[in-house]
Structures are given as C-alpha cells and as structure tokens.
Amino acid sequence: MEVRTIKVFTTVDNINLHTQVVDMSMTYGQQFGPTYLDGADVTKIKPHNSHEGKTFYVLPNDDTLRVEAFEYYHTTDPSFLGRYMSALNHTKKWKYPQVNGLTSIKWADNNCYLATALLTLQQIELKFNPPALQDAYYRARAGEAANFCALILAYCNKTVGELGDVRETMSYLFQHANLDSCKRVLNVVCKTCGQQQTTLKGVEAVMYMGTLSYEQFKKGVQIPCTCGKQATKYLVQQESPFVMMSAPPAQYELKHGTFTCASEYTGNYQCGHYKHITSKETLYCIDGALLTKSSEYKGPITDVFYKENSYTTTIK
C-alpha cells in the first residue's frame, strides 16, 4: 500500500517557510505537534488534498525554529505562539472599519479597549522592536488589523473576551517599542525636605499616572512627601515624541487643539466601556464603527496623549 502524501510549508514567522512532505494517514499533531492554519487549530486533523502548498504555523520545537521565533517575536515564552494563534482565530472574524481616516474595530468580545489602543497607536510616533509587531502594525494602518490585535493580546497575556485596560495595554506595548531616546527629568520640591531631581528613561519617561493635564504637570502637581507634608512635583525636561497622561476616570474637559487623542471610560472596574476622542479640525468621538463630532467635550476621561518633541522648564 502506497503512502499518500502532500507537500506543505511549516513556519513560526510566515517569513521562513520549511518544506514538509506530510503523510495523509496521520494527523498534523502526530507529525508536527500543535499546528495552526489561519489561526485555526488543526492539530487533530489529517492532511487533505486542499492543504497542498498551504502554510501551517507550528510551535518552535527545534533550534532553527526557536531562533526564527525569537528573532521575529522577541520572546522565548513557549506558550506565546499558541496564544497568538488562538487569538487570531477570533480577531480574523472582527470587522476593521476605516473611521475618520483611522483603522478602528467594530465592537465584539469586549474589544473596546483594543480599538482605543489601536486608534491611539496610529496617532503617536512609535516604532516597535519585534519585527512581528512592526509588520502587523503597518498592515493594521492599511486596514488589516487582525494579526496586530492578536499579537497585542498575546504580548499582554490576554484572551479574547476578557476586559482590558488601555493604560495597561499601552504599557505592555511600550515595553516592546523603541523608547531608548526618551528621557524625563522631574523635580520634587518640599518646604521641609528641599528639592530632589529624578531622571527617568524609556517607558517611565512617557507615562504618568495622577493627572490628565500635561500643562498642569509642567506647572506642578501636589504629591505627598515622605515627611508627610505636601510637596510639588513638576516637569523639568521632556525628550520624547509623545507623552501619555493618565488618571482614574473623572469628568474632564478636553479643549480642541490642546491634545492629540484621549480615552474615555464609562462604567466601573468590573464592567465598563471605552471610547476614543481625537482632536482634528474639530473633536471626534470614535466608538467602534461609530463616529460623532463636537466642538467641545466633557466626560469621564482616563488617558490623554500629547505630541511632544523637546521641553525644558522655565521655572527657576
């Protein structure tokens, strides 16, 4: 009895394709271990004539594949690729409408935090270190965002349907971005203890939790000093293409032309909904596939993004 075979390709990165001759009487799992086709788990399936010449994702289970996976995804987590594939199996079914010149995501599976993050990423200057993220990001900007969303979920250790947080998501993504040249110098002034300067680099240099107003941050924000008295913390120097200011959701007025974009969060910790506000020729609110415009805006804002380049204080 002759062994019926077909020729397929296996890959971990969709760049390096490895030619395989597979036995049609055995499952993919018996031949390769966990195997995925377009995100779908085909591990328990036997090869079919229609699979001839198709590319299958496999887990990096030998040295060659491990090197290829690390170079593309910059992670050695053995569960990463499987999590990416199972997320992709959902995100490829989502709709990605162009809204006001940006790629958004039609609401499904509690994905409003991903839509808000995706919209924000198209408006701030950011370059990702893992080629996987950078490639998928370019495709997302062009309207094909399924891979990018699935990668975000995998890097953030999230599953489809789980509630997510924009600030946490951005923080994970910033860790995989090139923020080497970003720098922030802060000064804390206390009447009792004097003053202390701190220099922050990388992710810490672009994120701040405690106030939404970048102007206020430049002037000074009140913080408790270690001595128990009130101290003032203010920005001395900022070198970065953008800054992200966050605070627990509270009524906040966004003035046209003073910011790049913002995240609105309605609801409580267990259950809520994100919308995205962007400042173009007027203010726009993007909620999944829905767009509304207004000249002014007041609502429960939790993150505001500002364009920056270089700032030095005039406070002496």
Rank of each mutant, 00 (worst) to 15 (best):
E2Y: 11
R4Y: 11
K7A: 12
K7N: 12
K7F: 09
V12K: 07
D13W: 06
I15K: 13
I15N: 14
L17H: 11
L17P: 00
L17V: 13
V21N: 14
V22D: 00
V22C: 13
D23G: 12
T27S: 11
Y28R: 07
G29H: 06
F32Y: 10
P34G: 12
Y36D: 08
Y36S: 05
G39Q: 08
D41C: 09
T43H: 12
K44G: 14
H48I: 15
N49M: 15
S50R: 12
H51G: 04
E52S: 12
K54F: 13
T55R: 10
T55E: 08
Y57M: 13
L59Q: 09
L59W: 15
P60N: 05
P60Y: 07
N61G: 14
T64S: 13
V67E: 13
V67Q: 14
A69K: 01
E71W: 02
H74R: 09
P78Y: 07
L81V: 14
Y84L: 06
S86E: 15
S86D: 14
S86G: 12
S86C: 13
A87N: 11
L88F: 01
T91C: 09
K92I: 11
K92H: 08
K93V: 07
K93F: 08
K95P: 00
Y96M: 05
P97C: 11
N100M: 14
N100V: 10
L102I: 06
S104T: 14
S104M: 10
S104N: 01
W107Y: 07
N110L: 13
N110W: 00
Y113D: 05
L114C: 01
L121W: 09
Q122M: 06
Q123G: 01
Q123L: 05
Q123F: 03
I124T: 08
F128T: 02
F128W: 10
P131R: 05
A132V: 01
Q134W: 02
A136H: 10
R141C: 14
R141N: 10
R141L: 13
A142V: 13
G143A: 05
E144M: 06
A146H: 11
I152N: 02
I152W: 00
C156K: 10
C156L: 04
T159I: 10
T159E: 15
V160M: 04
V160H: 01
G161A: 06
G161W: 08
E162D: 12
L163M: 11
G164Q: 08
G164V: 06
G164I: 04
G164T: 05
E168R: 09
T169A: 07
M170K: 03
S171M: 14
Y172W: 05
L173T: 06
F174T: 08
Q175R: 11
L179W: 02
L179G: 01
L179R: 05
D180N: 14
K183L: 10
R184T: 09
N187Y: 04
N187P: 06
K191R: 11
T192G: 09
C193F: 00
C193I: 03
G194V: 03
Q196L: 09
Q197V: 12
T199D: 00
G202K: 06
E204H: 09
M207D: 04
Y208D: 02
M209D: 08
L212D: 04
S213C: 06
E215D: 15
E215H: 09
Q216M: 09
Q222Y: 05
Q222W: 02
Q230S: 12
A231W: 00
A231I: 02
T232R: 08
Y234L: 04
L235N: 00
S240F: 02
V243D: 02
S246E: 02
A247T: 03
Q251K: 06
Y252K: 02
E253L: 11
K255M: 09
C261H: 04
S263G: 01
S263D: 10
N268Y: 11
N268V: 09
Y269P: 06
Y269E: 14
Q270R: 09
Q270W: 08
G272Y: 10
T278H: 07
K280S: 07
E281V: 00
E281H: 00
T282R: 03
L283D: 02
Y284F: 07
Y284E: 01
C285Y: 00
A289R: 02
A289G: 08
T292K: 00
T292M: 07
K293P: 02
S294F: 15
S295D: 15
G299S: 09
P300H: 05
F305C: 04
F305S: 00
E308P: 08
S310G: 03
S310L: 15
T312S: 12
T312W: 04
I315V: 15
K316Y: 15
